[in-house]
Amino acid sequence: MVLGGLLPQVPAVFVAVCVVTTLSIWVGSGLLEQAAEELSRYYGLPDVIQGSVVVAVGSSSPELASVVFAAAAGSFGMGVGAVVGSAVFNVLVIPGLAGLVTAAPVDADRTLVYKEAQFYMLAVSGLIVTFALAVIYFPVAGGPSLTGEVTRPLAAIPLLLYGLYVFIQWQDVNDHEPDADGERVPVGRAWGRLAAGLAVILIAVEQLVGAVEGLVGVFGIPEFLAGVTILAAATSLPDALVSVRAARDGRGVTSLGNVLGSNTFDLLVAIPLGVLIVGDVPVDFAVAAPMMGVLTVATILLFTMLRTGLSLTTGESYALLGAYLLFVGWVVGETVGAIDLIVGA
């Protein structure tokens, strides 16, 4: 419920809330980005780790909250769908927008391509294996044939994989030679700015998602379509603003690192954390596997474009945005029954 029900729950209010919260998220993302840059300089973190860990974890807080709240309400499948839809949005739309706001190509580097992108594909595979093990060893009695219970021990698999990711990043920090001006950063103020940015983003995104859900209910948009497109884009807004802002400032590695790091966090931490909090949750592999397959294809597409010249050109940015339009068209086709690749969508 938007604003705790203090205002009439009508379309005009929902639209106004969307506008105000979007502006609030822009402000919060600016605070988050500035704080992350200062803290990374103070602690001597490379640009790629600044984007893939520090900024990514902060800007992924909406996805984490959505999974936890959905799992607590008994709608874990919707939470997973929103996260996967958000991941597709992050991989295709955010780099595409970042490439269009800059006059020059968005720069990447070998660390981003060969470590971040490939580890992210490993994260996708790890989550698919976790869901498959749930179907094999913990099938839901009386339910669909490909539905299994994801237990707390199974949720530990992606969490351990994220632990490996953090360990690799920590090793890279040890190998990095930081700039000499890091000691002049007011670290206490930077941490305060980081906390303020996260608070603004969380509150604004919660209200934004509520407003979007209100509009979805008013116009009768199907739940599956709304979850993997509209709600996914709403929760990805902080990632989009942070990445586009970084690309516009000429920090392409930080921009793209945020995209891949956010997705890695969402898949390996946000989803299993919901399981750890609630307990055993059912997952329909017939829905999850095709969606994860699309995410894999989208990631391979981004990886291929980044590897050609270690940059993202304007033409490649348009291609990524076009691929997302194809994804939305496929989801709409699934919703209206014109396409039937996802069983039970």
Rank of each mutant, 00 (worst) to 15 (best):
V166Q: 04
A233Q: 02
A345G: 06
V242K: 02
I221E: 00
Q118L: 15
S24H: 07
T314L: 15
T235R: 01
Y318P: 04
V129L: 11
L64M: 12
P238Y: 00
G188V: 10
L97P: 10
L100M: 15
L64R: 04
V19N: 07
Q50P: 03
V281S: 08
V54M: 05
Y318W: 15
G148K: 00
L97Q: 11
T296C: 10
G4T: 00
P222W: 00
P62N: 09
A288Q: 08
L273N: 05
V55C: 02
F119C: 09
T235F: 05
S255A: 15
R184C: 13
V17Y: 00
T335N: 03
G143W: 08
N174R: 15
G188W: 10
V253K: 06
R41H: 07
A199I: 10
A36C: 03
W170S: 14
A12E: 15
D340A: 13
Y162G: 02
V20E: 07
V129R: 00
T235D: 05
A134L: 05
P11Y: 06
G217N: 14
P222I: 00
D280I: 10
V218D: 12
A12K: 12
L133Q: 04
V269I: 10
T147V: 13
W191C: 04
G329V: 06
A211I: 05
G96W: 08
L3N: 08
G58K: 00
P153L: 05
V67I: 12
R248Q: 13
R245P: 06
V55P: 00
P290I: 01
A323H: 03
T111C: 09
I342F: 00
P8V: 11
V93K: 07
F138K: 13
L202Q: 10
A232F: 01
A226C: 07
T130C: 09
W330Q: 03
M121S: 12
N263K: 08
A226S: 11
G210L: 06
E183W: 12
V216N: 08
M292C: 09
G28Q: 04
Q50Y: 01
A123L: 07
D266C: 06
L273D: 05
V228W: 03
L267P: 05
I342L: 02
R307L: 15
L7E: 08
S24Y: 06
P62K: 04
S145V: 14
A123K: 05
V91C: 11
L208T: 09
A16N: 09
E223G: 11
G5Y: 06
N263R: 03
D107W: 15
M291Y: 07
G143F: 08
V113A: 11
M121E: 12
G315C: 04
L122T: 14
L161I: 11
V113Y: 09
D284K: 04
I221G: 02
T111G: 13
Y162V: 01
G79N: 08
T335I: 03
Q9N: 14
S145Q: 13
W191K: 04
G210I: 07
I271M: 07
F119D: 08
L306H: 12
A87T: 08
G81E: 13
G197E: 06
D340M: 08
A190Q: 01
